[in-house]
Design a protein around this nucleic acid. Sequence first.
DNA 1: ACCTGAACACCGTTCAAGT
DNA 2: ACCTGAACACCGTTCAAGT
Lengths: 231, 231
Amino acid sequence: MTAKRSGARSKRPQRISQWSQPAQEPRSEPPLSRERIVATAAELLDAHGVDGLTMRRLADRLGSGVMSLYWHVDNKEDVFDLALDAVLEYRGSPQTVQSQDWRGEVVHMLEDWRASMLRHPWSASLLPRRALGPNILSRLELLSKTLSRAGVADADLNVAIWSLWNYVMGATITRAGFDLSDDDRAAAQKRLEHLSERYPTIERCRLLLDDDWDGAFRKGLGFLLDGLSPK
Amino acid sequence: MTAKRSGARSKRPQRISQWSQPAQEPRSEPPLSRERIVATAAELLDAHGVDGLTMRRLADRLGSGVMSLYWHVDNKEDVFDLALDAVLEYRGSPQTVQSQDWRGEVVHMLEDWRASMLRHPWSASLLPRRALGPNILSRLELLSKTLSRAGVADADLNVAIWSLWNYVMGATITRAGFDLSDDDRAAAQKRLEHLSERYPTIERCRLLLDDDWDGAFRKGLGFLLDGLSPK
DNA sequence: ACCTGAACACCGTTCAAGT
DNA sequence: ACCTGAACACCGTTCAAGT
């Protein structure tokens, strides 16, 4: 259904006659597969960002013709969907013991969620309008189960889940977007200085200069969980 | 600096000789301007979505050559940045009286923020990696001022602001993304039914079918504000 | 079942030039 | 100061065909 990241198997065919291969690509490629396509797409996205992913480049890197991709994949949108979900595979504690510390569990899960996406910043900018892949659904399921066990009533569960989801997605997108060059930072700073009479409060609390993103994420999540906690 | 939405002035030149105009576009266009470009871009985005905005189509609709746009605008990215900020102009209560109900004020501001973006769903998908335009900064400034007046200490202000921002942006992006056709909804539903043994909790609380987005937004925001309230 | 090249209908932007 | 057309180096995808 989606990239299971089974790793490209290295069962390479290896039948190269000495001269028929025109000294182009000595490495013989394993056969094309959905998994290889998605993994390579993620590499390309890591290296060149969202705009750097091109069906032609993807095919190039896979050593195939462009149109070969379309046998395994519907279209470029499909590649994006699969790449996003692939990055979100959850490798949490395999057998969660019935812990008493549900808050700690939730915080851990959501910090991992955010960290997984920030490792591949393009995933944040892919979030809008993308479908919920199986890995995302798994994470949502685990979150739901934990909250439910913690005593959140079914009637409140949806609000709790969406609130946490919203918070995490907003934080991740924002953080990924602000992970700019120092030049950009300096420019923003300069603009703010110049306009400090227009945005005095922002200027005073140095909103745009605070770079303790991780701390702010944890603290705000704490506040949200305070509000969500079953009474 | 950015689109002030001053409205296209209608000081149209009006010097059309009867035959030199080859019966193409009878309407004589007002001169090109940053404002007109941004306003027209927003129209195009409303009508055809993010992928529907093309420099060529934009120029067409403005009755100019493509390259004329580049005199007023750096590039396509620039157009996106300007369009996003243009949609976020805040027309709130002009002279806020020193209200006692800071919570009500914050809720109103953030609901308006979300509503403004949902009126133009493309704005949500434009959020990642976009710069903070003057209208966004104004909204952040107003939010900061209100929280500060409400008694949030400067030391906690950044966390409070970013938490609320994250929540609103996450909620807006999610909601805009889920505003799909009924077909998509039905498909998601079907997939979930089929996989209900894999995602039992999600299935049980009908997470993906609950469509009281506004209510969920308000409730979750309430929880977050509970946590953020100065003690 | 899987892969391919040619072709189509587009893109954003550079450049050298016009007024 | 403002606008332009031609040209460049790309795109994603259809199609008819190959093995």
